[in-house]
Structure formats: structure tokens, C-alpha cells
Amino acid sequence: MNRRDFLKVIAAAGIGGIVVMEGLDDFRVEAAEMNKDSNALQAKHWGMVIDISKFQKPEDIQRVANACHQYHNVPDIKDPKHEVKWIWKEDFEHAFAEMESKYLSEKIKTMNFPVLCNHCEEPMCVRVCPTKATFKRPDGIVVMDYHRCIGCRYCMAGCPYGARSFNFIDPRPHIGMMNHDYPTRAIGVVEKCTMCVERLNKGLKPICVEVSRGGIIFGDLNDPNSEVRKVLRSNFAIRRKAELGTGPSVYYVIGGDEEGA
């Protein structure tokens, strides 16, 4: 075989290889195409309304956060620089920092606001992710493929809500009670609230909704007859940094008799 023939064979093999690879591509399953159970909860746009009147005491949020974090094997890391959190407590002045109010009522000032991923309609984290490790499902939930995440943290720079945590240290030694029905994360990846997609798949509502004692209302924002839409029709609701055009799917109502709202 002379040099010319050899090069021809190599070129042919190369082209053949590319064709085969392209063919294989059709069998590749994107993470978004997860199988659905027959009794799975389905919606066009999942959303939440958080009734602040049901979170009078800091313990009310702590209960919800503990349930969420235990369920999802979120590590309990004390160092604020490395902490991982999916849902946690903020006060009004920090959760809604952009709504500067000089003479805030004492009631609002001392209220507790649970904050979490807003599952935006136009999620910045999805737009900036260079590997599609973060993606938006057709039902509006923004989730992650932890095995595809390269840990570049561009999503954390993009998220205007500080909703994302990075595993700066190995999370596994910091998990108190391991839930063996839910995976743990590796070091070096980003994580956040998933709106409990795996529970929805089994026909269950998110764990935070379940333990919130009516404080978190969950439903299809696209359905005018859903519970969330009913609450939004009769209450004044606010969203965090809605002016940025992200379209957050988490609403806050002061609740009760709307006094002091």
C-alpha cells in the first residue's frame, strides 16, 4: 500500500466513523425525557404561592427546610461560604431588597420569607449553562443533570436569586440521616431545588408543600381553575425581582386578612 492509498483508507474510515456516530446520536436520551408514571402529577406550568401568614415563627420555615434537606440529602455545612441550601429563611428587606421601603411596618419587617429556586419562565441559569446540565422541563420546572454539570458556576453568576449552591467540599460526610431513596451529589457540581420532580412523578406533591401546613400552595399556573390561580385571584401577590424579566413561578402573599400588606 502506497502513501496515497493509505491516506484514502484513513479518510474513508474517518467519514464512516462520523456517519456511525451520527446514527448513534439518535439513540441518545436527553435527561428531560424521563419516563412518567401513570399517576404522575402533570401540568403546563408548575408554580407555588407562599402564604407568609403561615410562617409566623422561624421554626415554621425550619420545619419545611429540614424536611426538604433531609429528603434530598442536602448536606448540613455550617460554614456560610460552603453551605448548600435549597429552601431557607430570609427577612423582607433581604428577600425583596429591591423594594426599598423606608418606613416598613414592624409586622412586615419581622416576617419570615422562605426563599428557594423560582423556577423562572426565562431561567438565566438555563441560558448560560454551557452543557445543558441545567434545563427547563415542558412543565416549567428547572432541573439539573448532576452528571453532566462541569462545575463552572456560570449558572450561579447568572441566577439573580442566589438560589444555587455549589459543592465546594465533599457533601457526603455532612449528610445527617441518609435518605437511601434519593441520590447524593458529588463534589464539584451545582445543585438547587427541583420542585420534587421525582415525587410529582409518583403522584405526590413537593415535600415542602406537604409539611408546610397550608403555607405553600402548589399547582398549575396555566390552569385558571387551579388552587394557585384561585389564591392569586383573591390576594395581592409579589414575586422576587420580577422586573428582571425572569418570570419567577414562586409568588408570595401576605395572607391571613392581608392586614399590613
Binding site: 448560560v128 449553562c129 454551557p130 454539570c149 462541569i150 463552572c152 455549589f166 458529588a186 463534589i187 464539584g188
Partner: peptide, 26 residues
Amino acid sequence: FILCDMGQPTRFLNIVLHPTPNSVMF
């Protein structure tokens, strides 16, 4: 420097394997 900054450096090829035109990083 980009490689040093990555939490999962061994996965760097994911940027090529899953090209994402909406990401400026791509």
C-alpha cells in the same frame, strides 16, 4: 485558568459533546 476553575475538570469535554449555542461560554 478555565480548567483550574472547573468543579469537575474531567468532564470538560461536555462543552464539546453537548454544544449549547445559547451559552456565551460555548
